[in-house]
Nucleic acid binder design. Structure first.
Lengths: 143, 143
DNA sequence: GACATATAGATGCATTTGCATCTACTATCT
DNA sequence: AGATAGTAGATGCAAATGCATCTATATGTC
């Protein structure tokens, strides 16, 4: 129960402004390109890495920090868009296994063509590699 | 038009996860305490700093990265909650001047009692002051 | 096996967001 | 002055979100 120092607050403020600003810019660029919102990318990428094994909804939820009901409905939208498929998980029939489709992979790649360069555009404003990894290390400590 | 390096991507991912996680934690704590959502704090704080001069909606929008219509409606909610007042800006009768009320100040203070310690809790996980300010400097460069 | 408890995910409903206007006023140009 | 374009903020409407609850299955206890 102690209040933050000026520098602690400054980091928190910078963290918010930076994230918010870049996130909005990327999301807008995706929209302009006629592609799905940025949050879809996280799911597609996670599923791509999971390959044929797929992933469970609750895993995505934890790893990508989704709220359960939001993820549930996002997956419904992705399924109706044909980007993702779901199957009953036979070892536990409450659960579903989620897998990316061919179309989902293709869309992810298209998204990356917009997303990747923008990540680079912003992150390369920290040109010194050490500064970059130090910043990452600091943020990682926090969580 | 160039793709990001691994380290650039790592920073972007860390930035997102850290922000999202802490933000959610703080917002949840405020809700538990029966206080308004975190985003209200930004507005209240900005108005508190503006003192009696108040602030224009479009200034808040730019500084706090709000979307225009969202801020407009947030201010409506804050007005009906009595935390904030608005007046016609006489030099330009399209505009409004927004000012914090006594009650708004009081609520901001209450929020800070929850918010402040949580900022400290998380940010103090980067104990070295240099690392902290370096991280802030890096993030600031990005924007 | 019967019963309580826990977990995976879906869903109803109220609130919030995003987008596209729309209104009111201001500034500029001729 | 009159017409034109620009800016501040509001608003209607569709979509997304958060919350609480619900259903179905699993697990653990007796």
């Amino acid at each position: 129960m102690m209040y933050p120092t000026r520098d602690e607050t400054a980091l928190w403020v910078a963290l918010n402004l930076t994230q918010r600003k870049i996130y909005a810019a990327i999301d807008a660029a995706l929209k302009t390109a006629g592609l799905p919102p940025l949050r879809w990318y996280d799911v597609l990428w996670e599923l791509e890495r999971a390959k044929d094994c797929g992933a469970r909804a609750f895993e995505l939820e934890a790893k990508l920090l989704f709220q359960q009901s939001n993820l549930s409905r996002l997956l419904q939208r992705m399924i109706s868009g044909g980007l993702v498929e779901e199957f009953v998980f036979e070892n536990d029939r409450r659960g579903k296994v989620i897998r990316i489709t061919e179309k989902g992979s293709a869309v992810r790649k298209e998204m990356w063509e917009v997303y990747g360069p923008l990540i680079h555009k912003y992150m390369s404003k920290v040109p010194d590699p050490h500064e970059l990894t130090n910043a990452t290390a600091a943020l990682t400590k926090i969580v």
